[in-house]
Amino acid sequence: MIQLLAFLFCFTSFTGFALAKSSHYKSVFGVRVDAKLSRHIRIVSWVCLLASALMSMWHQFGYGSILLCGYMAVSVMCLALLLSYMPAKLRSLIYLLPGLLVITAVLALL
């Protein structure tokens, strides 16, 4: 469960990195992103990535760091495909992600 949470954090983080870029933000929301929002998104993304790193390396540092590389690869792949084939779907996913994170976190804690 904790690994799923780590992956979700990683995915959220890279979603953030993508949305911080004006071209991708525009393809998802249809409007330009302003500089302040973009910066905020980027900060949140870094925090998420850090959280993901901590979680994946919690049990074993070496194994976890390889896992993290894998998570990043899969996240980037999914995002690139989503952004180019169904940007509208990504929009609903963005609203879903925090919910998913909370549910997984609760399940991981139980």
Binding site: F14, F17, A18, C69, A73, V76, M77, A80, S84, Y85
Partner: peptide
């Protein structure tokens, strides 16, 4: 341009596929 994949644009699409597949797993 990490997430960029421009579909249906001939050589440019292949370039994007090339870049994307290399950068997403570059550490690997």
């Amino acid at each position: 341009d990490m997430f960029q994949f421009r579909k249906g644009k001939g050589v440019r699409t292949w370039l994007d596929a090339h870049n994307l597949s290399s950068v997403l797993a570059l550490p690997f």
